[in-house]
């Protein structure tokens, strides 16, 4: 039999990977829009995106559980479309994680996008490059480390998720029992040895990821300032 902690590790990595991928799809255009827009809606959307940073995860979990319930309009619609409910499923955790990690993806990317010079894009446009062409060939390479930082933070933050999963997960092995929940269970059942192993593992993992992020940040700042002085 496979060790249940390994199952939890797999679920956690899968959740973080799926969440980061979905954030790449919806968070990238959102970050671009936020970086460029002068529309009044931007003032409203920006704090909305940042909300999960300051809200206790229990607030999100509490509302999500109500939203997922077959008694709610959304829950009912989902149930009639898919035949199952969202609470206590992997899909439900993905929805929760996307909301929870949204600012950690959008904010660094938004900063990176803001740094892209408008002149550069205008020049490319004059040369006949379309919006998608400009994004792929100019914005993406210039903001490469921004993407890495955003993706890494979103991934790491999802791995570190606890409160929401505790509230909407239902602790099902192989589906919703992620590492942080398994660690909590070990502490409660007095299996301190396993708890230590897991806690130390998460600590080293998180530190390593943050080390990458900050090294990239320094390197990026160093490069752009040297470019700035050179020009």
């Amino acid at each position: 039999m496979i060790d249940p902690d390994l199952v939890s590790l797999t679920i956690t990595l899968k959740l973080a990977a799926v969440t980061t991928f979905i954030l790449f799809l919806i968070g990238t255009p959102l970050a671009w829009w936020l970086a460029r827009t002068r529309h009044v809606a931007g003032f409203l959307v920006e704090p909305l995106v940042a909300l999960p940073i300051v809200l206790p995860p229990t607030v999100l979990g509490f509302y999500l559980l109500i939203l997922f319930s077959p008694n709610s309009g959304f829950g009912k619609a989902w149930a009639s479309l898919t035949g199952s409910t969202l609470a206590f499923t992997f899909e439900g955790l993905v929805i929760g994680s996307v909301i929870y990690s949204l600012p950690f993806y959008v904010q660094p990317l938004q900063v990176a996008f803001s740094g892209v010079k408008q002149d550069l894009l205008d020049a490319a446009a004059t040369l006949g490059a379309g919006p998608v062409d400009r994004f792929i060939n100019i914005v993406a390479p210039v903001c490469r480390s921004g993407f890495v930082v955003a993706g890494t933070l979103a991934f790491a933050h999802t791995v570190g998720e606890f409160g929401i999963v505790l509230m909407i997960g239902g602790n099902i092995s192989g589906e919703t029992r992620v590492l942080s929940i398994a660690l909590f269970d070990h502490v409660e059942t007095l299996e301190y040895g396993r708890a230590h192993l897991m806690a130390a593992g998460l600590l080293v993992f998180s530190f390593t990821l943050l080390l990458i992020v900050y090294t990239l940040n320094r390197w990026q700042t160093g490069r752009s300032s040297s470019l700035g002085s050179g020009s």
């Binding site: 319930s69 077959p70 409910t85 609470a87 206590f88 505790l166 239902g170 602790n171 099902i172």
Partner: peptide, 20 residues
């Protein structure tokens, strides 16, 4: 499908919200 609350309070909440 057995779903597990962390304690009996959370278990009650799962039923109360209609998710179980």
């Amino acid at each position: 499908r057995l779903v597990m609350g962390n304690n009996v309070g959370q278990t009650f909440h799962f039923v109360q919200t209609g998710n179980a």
